[in-house]
């Protein structure tokens, strides 16, 4: 419903029906036109080949390690335990009965195939999705912590806190995320990993430089949101809390921040949705998140239309879930 109910007269019964139908018609028209256009360029849709990038059945061959004779095959409910003896050695393998290729008494050499079995594995798109989820969650957690601290520092009386916060926010907001990711990986990453190598320590994987780049980037925006939220709480709230004898930290924690956080949930949600989408840039530093995974699939499958559409839908799934979760928090907070 309109935010200004009552300012204009009531709409007729048909008003909503007609315009609702128009909307649906427009939606169908757009999709139809897209389909027609792809036919014009003679693109062959092969949606049936998409699922294998989510889950696929992998065939594994069971091979022998030693030379010898198959001394015994014990069959129990679909599984066969194959025992091989030779040169004083013995080994046994479990093979599904219907896939058994050899029989008792057969002589085998190392590397011979006894049989095969199949199992389900998650495809590259799901792997990418999970990595995107992991990177985003870590970056959101660090982003909130950095943003909260910087937001408080931004309004502090202490010059070092306030100026540090301002410098940090302005620098981060003033440069492209892609450049920041390169700086983290090629400059900070190189320095840290070279130093670690000099002390004989293990390397920090690129994932963590990606997470830090995203968290520091988001933290700057979150800090400004937090600051605005704190300043939107009426001055009288702080005065009331302080007049009761609470100190600044107590008043902030118990009175100001709970009210501020409630108000900043909608802009925070927007910020974190941006972060999930921005994680698609991390492919450039060899983090195989959803976008990089999609590019690899497109290269091998030559089905750019389907795969990129699927990629977009997967991002939508993540951001929509996040958005629903924040709306739930908002409702709960009131």
């Amino acid at each position: 419903m309109s935010s200004y109910t009552g300012l204009d007269g009531p709409k007729s019964k048909h008003y909503y029906r007609i315009w609702g139908a128009t909307f649906l018609f427009g939606l169908c028209l757009a999709m139809g036109l897209l389909y027609y256009a792809t036919i014009q360029v003679e693109y062959t849709w092969r949606w049936n080949r998409v699922p294998q990038y989510f889950f696929y059945e992998n065939t594994v061959e069971i091979r022998t390690n030693i030379e010898g004779e198959i001394s015994n095959i014990q069959k129990t409910s679909g599984q066969a335990t194959v025992t091989i003896q030779g040169n004083g050695e013995e080994e046994s393998h479990i093979v599904p009965v219907q896939n058994l290729l050899l029989g008792q008494g057969d002589y085998v050499y190392p590397g011979d195939t006894l049989g095969t079995y199949k199992h389900w594995k998650i495809g590259i798109l799901i792997e990418g999705l999970l990595l995107t989820l992991e990177v985003s969650c870590l970056a959101i957690i660090f982003g909130i912590l950095i943003g909260l601290f910087t937001g408080l520092a931004r309004i502090a009386d202490n010059p070092i806190l306030r100026w540090s916060a301002i410098v940090y926010i302005e620098i981060i907001r003033g440069s492209p995320l892609l450049v920041q990711i390169f700086l983290w990986y090629f400059v900070v990453g190189t320095v840290i990993n070279t130093m670690l190598a000099q002390y004989g320590l293990s390397q920090v994987p690129p994932l963590w430089f990606g997470v830090m780049a995203l968290a520091i980037f988001t933290g700057a925006y979150t800090a400004e949101i937090v600051r605005a939220g704190i300043q939107s709480v009426h001055r009288g709230q702080m005065e009331a809390a302080r007049s009761l004898g609470m100190n600044y930290a107590q008043a902030m924690r118990k009175v100001i921040l709970p009210q501020a956080l409630r108000r900043i949930l909608p802009p925070l949600a927007g910020q974190f949705i941006s972060l999930v989408k921005d994680s698609s840039l991390l492919g450039v530093i060899s983090i195989r998140e959803l976008t990089k995974a999609t590019r690899e699939v497109v290269t091998s499958s030559l089905q750019p239309f389907e795969i990129w559409i699927v990629c977009a839908i997967l991002y939508l799934l993540l951001t929509f879930t996040l958005s629903m979760f924040v709306q739930y928090l908002e409702r709960k907070a009131i």
């Binding site: 009426h234 009288g236 709230q237 005065e239 009331a240 007049s243 009175v255 009210q259």
Partner: peptide, 13 residues
């Protein structure tokens, strides 16, 4: 020293 304000300033949450 207790203080009572014109606009009450109760904690709304």
């Amino acid at each position: 020293v207790g203080m009572v304000f014109q606009s009450f300033n109760l904690f709304p949450h």
